[in-house]
Nucleic acid binder design. Sequence first.
DNA 1: TTTTGATTTAAACAAATGTTTAAATCAAAA
DNA 2: TTTTGATTTAAACATTTGTTTAAATCAAAA
Lengths: 208, 208
Amino acid sequence: MQAPTEDLSTEEKIKEAARKIFLQKGFAGTKIRDIAEEANINIALMNYYFRSKEKLFEAIFQEALYELLGKTLQILNDTNLSFEGKIRAVVANDMAVMRKNPLLPSFVFAEIHTHVEKIVKDFPQIIDTNNLHFAQQHAEGVQLGKYRNIHIDHIFSMMMGMSIQPFLEKPFWEVQYAGQDAEKLFEEFIANHEKIVVEMLLGYLIIK
Amino acid sequence: MQAPTEDLSTEEKIKEAARKIFLQKGFAGTKIRDIAEEANINIALMNYYFRSKEKLFEAIFQEALYELLGKTLQILNDTNLSFEGKIRAVVANDMAVMRKNPLLPSFVFAEIHTHVEKIVKDFPQIIDTNNLHFAQQHAEGVQLGKYRNIHIDHIFSMMMGMSIQPFLEKPFWEVQYAGQDAEKLFEEFIANHEKIVVEMLLGYLIIK
DNA sequence: TTTTGATTTAAACAAATGTTTAAATCAAAA
DNA sequence: TTTTGATTTAAACATTTGTTTAAATCAAAA
C-alpha cells in the first residue's frame, strides 16, 4: 500500500515516521513505540540510530525550524531583491512551505519555549533583525520618506502573524467544511490570503 | 512567602496550579505530581476533586478558551459598536488578555487539534463567522463601497494573527533583551503594535 | 566457505505516571 | 462528648515509557 517507504534506509524510515508523529503530537505527546509502529521497525533501532528520543527529536525540530525560517532569512538578506520584492518573496515562500506542511507553525511555536537558547545559537539573525539587509533597506527608505517609520520588528510580527494564522486555525476550517472539499477550499483561501497580505503590508508601509 | 494561596480552597489551589503548569507544558508534558507540588497538596486530592488528569485539563482548557475568545466574540456581536469600533475593541481586548497571560495563545493553538470538536460545540460562532454582527456590518459597507470587498475570514485571520504573533515570539524577545528590562520593553512594543495593527487594518479595509 | 562487523530482534529493566486504596484527620451536627 | 461525613494522607497498584541487553540475522570481505 505504501510502497515508497519500503526502499528507504532504516534511518530514513525512522526520521520520516518521527517527523510525522512529532509534528502531530509534540515531544511530550509522542511515544517512541508510536514512531516504531509508524516506521515498521523494532523500538531498539531508534536508539541504535539516534541514541535517544531527545536526540531524535532535536534532529527533527532543527529540520522543521530550517524549513520554516531558513529560506525566509535568506530572502531577507538577499541583496538582489528590493524591499518590496523581499516582502513578496517572504510571504510567498512562507505560504508555500506551510501549504506543504500545515502543522509546521503550530509545532515550532509550541516547542519553542523548550529550545529558545539552541535556536538562537543556530539562527542568531532571529534576534539580530537589525542587521538584515531588509532592515537596512527599510531604514534607508524611511530616511527618504518612502517607507513608514516603524520598528522593523513590527513588520516581522505582522508579516509572519498574518501568514501563519490561517494554518493555526486550519483545524476549525476542516470542521466547518467537512464533507465538502475542505482541502481545495482552504487552498483557494490561502491563495487569496497571500495576495491580500502582501497588498495590505505594502499599502501600509509604502508612503504614496 | 506566597501567602495568597494559603486561604484558597483546595479545589482553587489545584486549579490555579494546574493552570500554571498546563499553560507552560501542555497536557502531555504536564505530570500530575508537578501540579500537586505546585499546589502543595497530596496527589490523591487531584482525583478526589477532578476525577482525572483529563477532566482537570478540560476545565482549565475551557476557561483558557473563554478567556482568549469569549470577549472577542461578544464584541463582534455588539450591535452598539460600529465596524471600525469593533476592530479597535477586539484588538485592544486581545492585547490586554495576552498581556496578562502571554502563554495563552501558544497553549490554546497547540492543544486545539485534540479538542476541535468540543470547541466548536461550545463556540459555534467560531465557525459561523458569517452570522456575526461584524460580518453583516462589513457586508453592508461593501455594498455601499465603503469597505474593501474581501471575505470576512481574511479579516479575522489578519486581525488575530497580527495580535497573537508577538506573544508567540516572546521567548526570543526574552533572550534578546535578557539583562535589560525585557518585560518593560516588551510592554512598550505591544502598546505600539496595537496602534499599528489597528491603523493598518482600518487603512486597508476602509476605502477613502 | 568462513569470518567479520553491521543490523535487527525479542525480551527485560528501571523509572515514571495516572489512579486507587484504606486508614487517618478534621470539623460540624446530634 | 459522640457521631457522622467530608477531607486529607501515605502507600500501593497496574501500566506505560524510554532504554538496554544479549542473542540472532544478514551481507560483504577474506
